[in-house]
């Protein structure tokens, strides 16, 4: 563990908490892409299956459980409890165009052709594009509530901090994982446009 990864995990946790609070407090999921949230739940489910097979640390196990619970909790709030406020008309990104390529790519490029490894690789590829429906929805509606933009800023920052973690690990532990690094860079690059808007204008209400 290093400070970059710890800050990244905290930023990730913060993003998920901000989202849950926004939906719970405003009792509305307006402006939030349910499709992205479904993709995140698939990402965590595919990646954290090793929760039952390999114990790494209490921190690791607890965070995995928190991320899984929070992502399914968000889906429950969006599609069941506050379903009436879900904005179907603007949440239209075709997620099958994201899932299928990630499945194919994870079968072609992976560290080891075993079920758990393929699922992990699939989750890494899918996570890098999982935010696209949300960014697409924000661009379509032309704006985002301030709380939603804070959510996106924290979520985008998490993987950017992980890139610093990978740089650190390369020099400090001579460890690197090409698949995670390339996907993490793609994921962070996708936020660049949003980061620019967030920092220059605070995109809410524009």
């Amino acid at each position: 563990m290093n400070v970059f990864r710890l800050l990244g995990d905290i930023s990730h946790l913060l993003a998920i908490i901000i989202l849950l609070l926004k939906i719970w407090k405003t009792r509305s999921c307006a402006g939030i892409s349910g499709r992205s949230q479904v993709l995140f739940a698939v990402v965590y489910t595919a990646r954290y299956l090793d929760l039952f097979t390999s114990y790494i640390s209490a921190y690791n196990s607890i965070m995995k459980l928190v991320f899984l619970a929070a992502s399914y909790g968000t889906i429950y709030l969006m599609f069941i409890k506050f379903k009436a406020s879900y904005d179907h008309n603007h949440d239209t990104f075709r997620i099958e165009f994201l899932i299928l390529p990630c499945v194919l790519l994870s079968l072609l490029i992976n560290h080891e052709f075993s079920p758990l490894e393929i699922l992990w690789t699939f989750s890494i590829y899918l996570e890098s594009v999982a935010i696209l429906p949300q960014l697409f929805m924000v661009s379509k509606t032309g704006e985002a509530e301030s709380i939603t933009s804070h959510y996106l800023f924290a979520l985008g920052s998490y993987r950017a901090l992980y890139i610093l973690n990978w740089i650190y690990r390369y020099y400090a532990e001579s460890h690197y994982d090409v698949i995670a690094i390339v996907a993490g860079i793609v994921q962070t690059v996708l936020y660049c446009d949003f980061f620019y808007l967030y920092i220059t204008k605070g995109i809410y209400g524009q």
């Binding site: 995990d9 790494i56 690197y176 994982d177």
Partner: peptide, 10 residues
């Protein structure tokens, strides 16, 4: 140690 899957990362 190079190019191994980062198993300890979330």
């Amino acid at each position: 140690r190079l190019l191994q899957r980062s198993k300890d990362e979330l």
